[in-house]
Write a protein that binds this DNA or RNA. Structure first.
Length: 497
RNA sequence: GGCCCCAUAGUCUAGCGGUUAGGACGUUGCCCUCUCACGGCAGUAGCAUGGGUUCGAAUCCCGUUGGGGCUGCCA
């Protein structure tokens, strides 16, 4: 814990791929943990792998976190800007005899490894350069810097894992004299991560399970450099439906893809917080709930399989809780440039409001509005062939047209101040009620029922078997457009007969 | 191979020595209904395995099996 007794966490991705599900969960856990204690959350870009790091990925990570409202308290720290810091610590370790230069070539080390493996031993560095005499060191020759791991019979290095609530330790003999500075002078992950976490005064490190065996190495480094050792919590991996680990190297979907597919950030966060963490039987969490209740003690220890069905369910729940005006904007945010934007007017609102409980993604919302977005519709034979129409169909449609014509145009009045949402919604409700009332009168006067006439109206007005409720459809499509569609529909079935 | 971690329905999980093993997704049936949904009701399916400890074990201990991670001059 630092001086202020403040909890400080971080998310430290490497920009070698798009931000994916597993990374987001780690980021989210760190974020809500810090916020739970009123602490700070930081972002550090670990771009020391010069070959694989790319700006494109870096931007994707930043954008995705922003979209998810997982916002760092300070600007991101870039390891590539801190090389001189790492160098000074490497020099110090060298001077203090806690690290040493190693001149072994990669080929030589490879040979060692193969030999150890064939002898059934752990393929570790042989320690050949561990105790070179000064005259044997020629710094002009290619070399790396290795950490001199503490050796000794029965010596162990361990830590208490907060996610498991128990100690995990390793025999020091299992720990290699690992490389801390590469041949090109760039620090390796284990070295840079320790220096940065210490200098950034990170108090709690919540990260993936895959780092468990790095932890003793890092603890040795903390001790060697005289830093305080932070707390650790290792979160289990997320598995694909095949039971294999989900990672960016194994085709995990990116956050940006989920956004494109019409998922809400609230839903993604909600799904991920529940994947590996629980708070009793609760399922629905908003960010403030997560911050309020999140606790390392309730993290599950076993790996979790990613399940899209449940994510879809959560997405539908979060969509339902948003007002239609917002949904229209969200759908437009992710629309393909080839698509017309949805107009944020009362007609669209009428449909979106009734579609809210019928969709699982924003993409679906848009698809279900196709009949409305397009000025005219095409009647598809593969749909209409399922139905039979006769003389009575035409008689009914003609009457229905007459009914629409007779409707007071005021019902379709759309001039409303959308900034006054409740008023707009009220007006909408009245219009739909009016249509419903008038329509029911029309039906009963003719001894018809909604049940028997709904399908033909739906087909005529939308061209589909499935649509939003008809009163809303009539209101949204509007009087004139409805009439035009009925005419067109009549022509279509007339020819077919 | 070595080291480390993990194990409740198809999936996510609650449970922390005494429960008819709870909830959620999915799935099935029914109700509601202008279609599709939503909603409501009901059903479906689970403690990997073998030993201990205990009056009593999903819960504690050990072995087995299974899964995962690490074993890089990746992170």
């Amino acid at each position: 814990m630092n001086n202020n007794n403040e909890v400080r966490t971080r998310f430290a991705p490497s920009p070698t791929g798009y931000l994916h599900i597993g990374g987001v969960r780690t980021a989210l856990f760190n974020y809500v943990y810090a916020k739970h204690f009123g602490g700070k959350f930081f972002l550090r870009i670990e771009d020391t792998d010069l070959d694989r790091s790319r700006k494109e990925f870096e931007f994707d990570i930043l954008d995705s976190l922003k979209w998810l409202s997982i916002t760092p308290d300070e600007d991101a720290v870039y390891q590539s800007n801190r090389l001189e810091i790492y160098k000074s610590y490497a020099d110090r370790l060298l001077k203090e005899g806690k690290a040493y230069l190693c001149f072994c070539s990669k080929e030589l080390i490879e040979e060692d490894r193969n030999r150890f493996a064939s002898e059934g031993k752990k393929p570790m560095y042989s320690g050949r350069c561990r105790n070179l005499r000064p005259e044997e060191k020629d710094c002009s020759m290619p070399h790396v810097i290795r950490f001199k791991a503490e050796r000794g019979e029965g010596l162990r290095t361990g830590f208490k894992d907060l996610a498991r609530n128990r100690f995990i330790n390793f025999n020091n003999n299992e720990i290699d004299d690992f490389v801390i500075v590469r041949g090109d002078g760039i620090p390796t992950y284990n070295f840079a991560v320790v220096i940065d976490d210490a200098l950034m005064e990170i108090t709690h490190i919540i990260r993936g399970d895959d780092h468990v065996s790095n932890t003793p190495k890092q603890i040795m480094l903390y001790n060697a450099m005289g830093f305080n050792v932070p707390e650790f919590a290792h979160v289990s991996m997320i598995l694909g439906s095949d039971g294999k680990r989900l990672s960016k190297r194994h085709g995990a979907a990116s956050v940006s893809q989920y956004k494109k597919d019409g998922f809400l950030p609230e839903a993604l966060n909600n799904y991920l917080i529940r994947l590996g963490w629980s708070h009793g039987n609760d399922e629905i969490f908003y960010m403030n709930d997560m911050i309020k209740y999140f606790d390392l003690k309730n993290i599950s220890k076993s790996a979790a399989v990613f399940n899209t069905e449940k994510l879809l369910w959560l997405n539908s729940r979060h969509i339902r809780s948003k007002d239609p005006f917002v949904l229209i904007d969200l759908a437009n945010d992710i629309r393909d440039i080839s698509q017309k934007p949805l107009v944020n007017d009362i007609r669209t609102v009428a449909l979106v409001e009734s579609l809210k409980s019928r969709i699982k993604t924003l993409v679906e919302l848009r698809q279900k509005l196709d009949f409305f977005i397009n000025e005219s519709i095409e009647y598809k034979s593969e749909i209409l062939n399922e139905f039979t129409f006769d003389e009575n169909s035409l008689i009914f449609l003609k009457a229905f047209k007459g009914f629409l014509n007779g409707l007071n145009s005021k019902i379709f009045e759309c001039d409303v101040d959308l900034s006054k949402k409740n008023e707009a919604l009220e007006m909408l409700k009245n219009s739909v009620e009016s249509i419903k009332g008038e329509f029911n009168d029309f039906l009963s006067k003719n001894s018809w029922t909604m049940k028997e006439k709904a399908t033909i109206i739906r087909l005529a007005l939308t061209g589909e078997k499935i649509s939003p409720p008809l009163y809303e459809v009539i209101f949204a499509v509007g009087k004139e457009r409805c009439i035009r569609r009925i005419d067109k529909f009549c022509d279509y079935i007339d020819i077919k007969r």
